[in-house]
Amino acid sequence: MCVAVDGAPRSARLDLLPLRVDHAEEMARVLSDPALYVFTGGRPDTPAELRARYGRVLAGSPDPAVSWLNWVLRLRDEGCLTGYVQATISPGAAGPEAEIAWVVGTPWQRRGLAREAARALTGWLDSRGVRTIVAHIHPDHRASASVAQTCGLTPTGHWHDGERRWRREVPEGVPETA
């Protein structure tokens, strides 16, 4: 279930905190395991690289019709950051649509946190009238596919950069759920 606190999504165990540049140091540790990049490519960023990236992200999209939303995941019981979720919202044919992504650091995986965070995010998007939600998932990344399924997304026949597009659309006349 998604409960908004000060406008931000929240779940049973997680606070989704709006991204800040000063999260870079802790997030560099959260995202430091090279195993996190097996399906997406790349390597862990240094704290300086994350600070620069977060500064660019927080400056916002150069397209005024597109919103970039980014939250870090704070596990309340442990008082630490554990990952992030993000959504890019843009105009769509049936209303606003969002492309979402989630990452949970290796030490916190296999605890249902990605599923919980993604559900909080999609519930928050639903409550704001987003009609279509998509995610791109590597075909061998079973954990992410399971998270997407839990959020009501289904795989499509569309591919981008070796990842399958998953999609959920709320039909016209059907109320969004929170």
Rank of each mutant, 00 (worst) to 15 (best):
R43F: 05
G60S: 05
E172D: 14
R10G: 06
T88K: 13
A135N: 06
L58S: 02
I89W: 01
P47F: 09
G105Q: 08
Q109H: 04
V147Q: 01
P47W: 15
V57W: 09
E49V: 13
G123D: 04
A120Y: 06
V85T: 13
T156L: 08
T82S: 06
T106F: 05
L16E: 06
E169F: 05
C2S: 11
R10L: 03
F39R: 00
S146G: 15
W71I: 07
I137K: 02
V21W: 03
D22I: 07
R131W: 08
G79N: 10
R29G: 12
C80H: 01
H160K: 08
W68G: 09
H23E: 10
D33M: 10
D6N: 12
R131Q: 11
T154L: 14
A65W: 00
E97V: 04
R110Q: 10
E116W: 02
R29V: 15
G7D: 06
W71L: 06
T132E: 15
H141W: 03
L125T: 06
A135C: 13
A117N: 01
R119N: 11
V130F: 07
I137T: 04
H141N: 15
D6H: 09
V174D: 10
P64G: 12
D33H: 13
E49D: 12
V57E: 11
V30C: 06
T82P: 00
I100K: 02
R115E: 11
V85G: 09
V174G: 11
E99V: 07
T156F: 05
V66S: 08
A178R: 15
Q86C: 15
G92N: 05
T40R: 02
L113Y: 15
I89M: 01
S144Y: 03
H160C: 05
A24R: 05
W108V: 06
G60P: 08
E116C: 01
A87P: 04
H23M: 08
L16T: 01
A28R: 06
G95W: 07
D126P: 03
R43M: 08
R142W: 05
E176K: 09
R20Y: 00
V57I: 15
L36V: 12
T132Q: 14
E26F: 07
R76I: 08
S144P: 01
A101W: 12
S146K: 12
G83T: 00
G83Y: 02
V66D: 08
E163P: 01
G79W: 11
A24Q: 04
R51D: 05
A65P: 00
R29L: 14
G173E: 07
A143H: 04
D22Q: 07
G105V: 11
E172S: 06
G162T: 10
A94V: 14
L75E: 05
G60N: 04
A93D: 10
R111D: 05
V66E: 07
Y37W: 10
E176S: 15
L19R: 03
A148Y: 00
H158P: 00
S90I: 04
G129V: 09
I137L: 11
S32Y: 04
A65Y: 01
G83A: 02
V147F: 00
W102R: 01
E25Y: 05
H160D: 11
A4T: 09
T132K: 14
L153A: 03
V5Y: 10
D77E: 15
P18M: 04
